[in-house]
């Protein structure tokens, strides 16, 4: 039982990170109908930006307060990753909007290869590990030999995820930007005719997606303390799985899907086989798409004759 609770805590933490990335997939798919293949690599880039920002604030500026460090790193990572994704959309996707359907997909694959190799060339192929940013934990129960713990960093991840989801929900549901976004999702041409600046709305979608990925990247770095240039692909696919599982296009779906994937992966590793944990994730992806393509919260796709 204790083991189970501990895995539950770990799974939700991992799932929060996936959920934040998954929102990026779901938003971009919702608005321009493309799987942004490079999104996993944007997440990886953000983890590197966070790593460098962390080294600057701790080693160079010598700020000792953990809270200040974390906030500074988070803001820097969000700002620069947003810029990266804004440029990606501008350079690699916008010229292809409304063109041949495969072109943006190939362009996104190219961008994904470019980003991971850019980081490899510019930062070197080795694993980058940092000493733990946040230490300490709550011991929740200590029966038997197995203590159930909730570490501070897990708590921070939960807290920040919840806070950001709230802010993000407000943005989408209550602001004019969110309204423009939902209008573009329904019918881009009509939205443009009614005066919505479609280009700007799509750009903002990429910026928001990147900011959330940057939060995930920072959390990932803080949680694992290590990052490498190839860390974009597998978390990217898992987050995409989460988006599909929740129903692509559905924002709460992405979060729920993320947590589900986190839990599936954690429990699979804990109870079955850690070697096959990625096989489990990919299988969930395939099974969901084949048997439940509309996901948990998505609208069913009816074939028009």
């Amino acid at each position: 039982m204790e083991y189970f609770v501990q895995q539950l805590i770990n799974g939700i933490t991992l799932g929060s990170i996936y959920g934040l990335i998954a929102i990026g997939y779901t938003m971009v798919f919702g608005i321009i109908g493309m799987v942004n293949f490079a999104h996993g690599d944007v997440f990886m880039v953000s983890a590197f930006i966070a790593l460098i920002a962390y080294l600057i604030v701790t080693a160079w500026l010598g700020i000792a307060s953990v809270a200040l460090d974390l906030i500074a790193v988070l803001i820097v990572a969000m700002a620069f990753t947003s810029l990266v994704n804004w440029v990606i959309e501008r350079v690699a996707y916008r010229p292809l909007r409304g063109s041949f359907r495969l072109a943006p997909l190939i362009s996104a694959i190219g961008m994904s290869i470019f980003l991971s190799n850019f980081v490899q060339v510019s930062q070197g192929p080795r694993n980058k590990s940092i000493p733990p940013m946040v230490q300490g934990e709550f011991v929740l129960s200590k029966t038997h030999d197995f203590p159930v713990t909730l570490s501070y960093k897990q708590l921070i991840i939960w807290g920040i995820t919840a806070l950001l989801l709230l802010a993000f929900w407000y943005l989408v549901a209550k602001t004019s930007l969110g309204r423009a976004q939902r209008a573009c999702e329904q019918d881009r041409k009509m939205a443009a005719l009614l005066g919505v600046d479609v280009d700007r709305t799509i750009s903002m979608t990429f910026v928001i997606a990147a900011a959330l990925a940057a939060v995930a990247g920072t959390m990932y770095l803080m949680y694992y303390g290590v990052v490498t240039f190839s860390d974009g692909f597998v978390p990217g696919v898992k987050a995409f799985t989460a988006a599909v599982l929740g129903g692509i296009g559905s924002l709460p779906g992405a979060v729920v899907g993320g947590i589900l994937i986190g839990l599936i992966e954690t429990f699979w590793s804990a109870y079955f086989s850690i070697d096959y944990k990625d096989v489990a994730a990919f299988s969930v992806l395939a099974i969901t798409l084949i048997f439940l393509p509309q996901g948990l919260f998505g609208r069913p796709d009816v074939e028009k004759v």
Binding site: P95, L96, F100, A103, G110, S112, I113, F114, V121
Partner: peptide, 17 residues
């Protein structure tokens, strides 16, 4: 691979089809 990725994007923009 860096150039490969870049070329994919560039060629798609140049000739999407």
């Amino acid at each position: 691979m860096l150039l490969f990725g870049f070329a994919l994007v560039a060629i798609m923009i140049w000739r999407p089809r």
